[in-house]
Simulated scan of single mutants.
Amino acid sequence: MCDNPSMVNAIPNTRLGRYVETAVGGEIVRAFVPPALPPSPPINVLPLLTKLSAAERALGRLDGITMLLPRHDLFLYMYVRKEAVLSSQIEGTQSTLTDLLRFEAAAEAGQPFDDVREVSNYVDAMMYGLGRLDELPLSLRLIREMHARLMDGNRGGDKNPGEFRRSQNWIGGTRPGNAMFVPAPPNEIDPCLSDLEAFIHEETSGLPPLIKAGLLHVQFETIHPFLDGNGRIGRLLITLYLCTKGSLQAPLLYLSLFLKSHRSVYYALLQSVRETGGWEGWLAFFLEGVAETANQAFDAATQIVELFKADRDRITADSDRAGSSLRVHDWLQSNPFVTSNVLVEQIGLSAPTVNAALADLERLGIVTEITGKRRNRVFSYKSYLDILSEGTAPL
């Protein structure tokens, strides 16, 4: 950060990027090529310090409680699925968290298969990327590998999964000529992506990791290097980067609920960066989102811990078959939709014992049978789902 205004004025303004004309579908359009990061003149961090501090405190608090959770892997398992639903909803799918969990549990069908498959692929891409960070740096190669898994077998499967585009795309509108935004043409993508990868690993700018994460997200969205799936990969890039920098110990920061709730402001700020170089306005919004999202995840973790303890205490005190009921309750914590057949197979209890335990949990108000059938019944852990599902109604 430069504190001398005269020095700032002496630095050439290269924040605005450049437009190049390109022919698409018989018309000439202006495509935007962003400048390399970091921005010049440099980001004025001083007005952002209050929001930056609040965001860092919220991340630290979230890390603290997740490390204290009896089963923080379980919270991660569920929260990743919530993020997958929200991120996919921004792209137009109508699946809910309930649909995804029922799909994974092979219970009753929810939304159309294609929608649920897209969300399931997002979970797979996310967990793959997080796992690969142990052996591969955050890089263009990893981004391509994640994209291949994201697009595998779904409605974007014909749009070059795992490959950067070699044709022009656009955002908004019915064709490039009336689009809201036209990203860089194919021949400009490789240099832009090389600059992006270099910025991921540079150490000379001195920018805090949260600021860099905000810059990386917008740059990736502006380059828009894939034919489909850019938004989902670009949002995941935030969390992956913060994990590599140690700003997050567990990958639990996902901004999709915040961006879904403020999507008109989000899109306007992305355009402002492209049109005016207004990075500081975007970063203020981004840091607010980090703090709000981390605090929401902290609250959800706290509620879940309290719910599990209260229900276990109730089972212990009021159940006639506490041992088997507690084993079923333990399974429900990672599988909030369940059938008796699955329980017999997975936890090693007999069918009569499982059915008696489910009846006991239903009597205590802990599970609810959701099919109304006498056979092939499905039970849900509704109170748990209510906490997890907050904010996940389709757009």
Rank of each mutant, 00 (worst) to 15 (best):
D299P: 02
A291Y: 02
G348F: 05
A317F: 09
D330N: 14
F298T: 08
A357L: 03
A291P: 00
W279G: 08
E288K: 07
G323M: 06
E292Q: 09
Q303S: 08
G323E: 11
V328A: 07
V354F: 07
A300G: 04
K309R: 14
E280N: 11
V305A: 15
N355L: 13
D311E: 15
R314Y: 05
G277R: 10
G278A: 14
H329I: 06
R274N: 12
L307T: 03
L332T: 06
E275A: 13
V354M: 08
A359H: 13
R312I: 10
P352V: 00
S325T: 09
R312E: 15
N295T: 05
H329K: 09
V328G: 04
V342H: 12
T276K: 15
L326K: 01
A310K: 11
L307D: 01
E306R: 09
V328W: 02
R321D: 12
R274H: 09
W279K: 12
F298L: 07
A294P: 03
T353L: 05
I315R: 06
G281K: 15
V305H: 13
F286G: 04
G348Q: 04
G289D: 03
K309E: 14
G323Y: 05
L343G: 10
N341K: 13
N341V: 08
P352L: 02
A356T: 13
V273T: 05
A294S: 00
T293H: 01
R312Y: 11
S340V: 05
T339R: 15
S319K: 06
F286H: 03
N355T: 06
R274Q: 12
S350R: 06
D318N: 12
Q296P: 03
N295Y: 04
L307E: 01
F308I: 14
W282L: 11
A356V: 11
I347Y: 08
L358C: 05
L287W: 01
Q333I: 03
R327M: 09
T302Q: 08
A317K: 09
D313G: 07
G278K: 10
T316E: 14
A297G: 01
P336K: 03
Q333C: 10
W282M: 09
A300V: 06
N355H: 08
I304L: 07
R321Q: 10
T302H: 05
T339V: 08
A356E: 13
I347K: 07
Q346K: 14
N295V: 02
Q296M: 12
L343Q: 08
G278L: 10
D313L: 06
T276N: 15
